[in-house]
Design a protein around this nucleic acid. Structure first.
Length: 201
DNA sequence: TGCACGGGGTCCTAACGCTC
DNA sequence: GAGCGTTAGGACCCCGTGCA
C-alpha cells in the first residue's frame, strides 16, 4: 500500500494535532488512527523521532508528566501551522482520498473473494448432486440454511456497525470530509450487498 | 484478607529498510 | 541525507485470579 503521508506531511500534520491540544505520543498515534478511520496507524518508531525532531527545531515542547511525555506546540510551531494552512488543507484532503481508495480496495477484495466463493459453492453443489443420496441429507440442508441465515445476519450487523462507527467519527470532530465518509459507507454497503447476493447464489 | 503472579495496556527506544 | 515506516523489545502500571 502506498505511503499515506508524503515527505514532510506527517511533520505538519503532527503540528496541527498539537495545535488543537497538547498530547502524548501514544495519544497522537491513536488520533491519527482515529482520523483515518483506522486505516493508518503510525508506529511508535515513526511518531517519536518526528516529535524529537520538532522539539529540536523549537516547534514543540515536551513536559514529562509521570510516565507520560506530553508534547505541546510552541508559538513558532503555531506560526508554521498558520503559514502552511493551505498545505495542511491539501494533506487533509489527501487523507480523505486515501480512505476512499482503501474503501475501493476493500470492495475489490470482497468481489474477488465472492468470485472464489461462488466457484467453491458451484463445485460443492455439483459434487453434492453427483453423490448418491445419504442418510441425514435433510439435516445437512437444514444446517446449510441456518448457516446462510447467520451469514446474512452478520452482514447486516457489520453494515450497521460500520455506518454507526463512521457517523460517530464525524460527530466527534474527525477531519475526514463528509463526502469521504459517504464514499466509504457506500463502498462497504456495496460490499455487503454483494456478499449477501453471493451467499444467496 | 493479603500476597504472588500473569496478562494486557501504555509509553518509549533502537535498529534497520525503503523512497525521494 | 532526510523522512516515512516496520519490527523488536523493554519498562512500568493496573487489574483480575488463584491460593494460603
Amino acid at each position: 500500500m502506498a505511503p499515506v503521508f508524503s515527505h514532510g506531511d506527517l511533520r505538519l500534520y503532527l503540528l496541527s494535532l498539537l495545535d488543537e491540544s497538547p498530547r502524548h505520543g501514544y495519544d497522537l498515534m491513536q488520533a491519527l488512527a482515529d482520523r483515518t478511520g483506522g486505516t493508518y496507524t503510525p508506529s511508535a518508531g515513526t511518531i517519536y523521532p518526528r516529535l524529537a525532531k520538532l522539539e529540536e527545531e523549537g516547534l514543540v515542547t515536551k513536559t514529562v508528566d509521570g510516565r507520560k511525555t506530553v508534547y505541546a506546540i510552541t508559538d513558532a510551531g503555531r506560526a508554521e501551522v498558520a503559514a502552511r494552512a493551505g498545505e495542511l488543507e491539501g494533506i487533509q484532503s489527501d487523507l480523505a482520498d486515501s480512505v476512499r481508495l482503501i474503501a475501493q480496495e476493500v470492495r475489490g477484495s470482497v468481489r474477488e473473494a465472492m468470485r472464489s466463493l461462488r466457484a467453491d459453492l458451484a463445485a460443492a453443489s455439483k459434487a453434492d448432486r453427483d453423490a448418491p443420496a445419504r442418510p441425514h441429507e435433510d439435516d445437512e440442508r437444514s444446517a446449510a440454511r441456518e448457516q446462510l441465515r447467520r451469514a446474512e445476519a452478520a452482514v447486516t450487523e457489520f453494515r450497521t456497525q460500520v455506518r454507526a462507527d463512521m457517523r460517530t467519527h464525524v460527530a466527534r470532530g474527525g477531519q475526514l470530509s463528509a463526502s469521504a465518509v459517504d464514499a466509504f459507507i457506500e463502498a462497504m454497503d456495496a460490499a455487503a450487498r454483494e456478499l449477501t447476493r453471493g451467499l444467496r447464489g
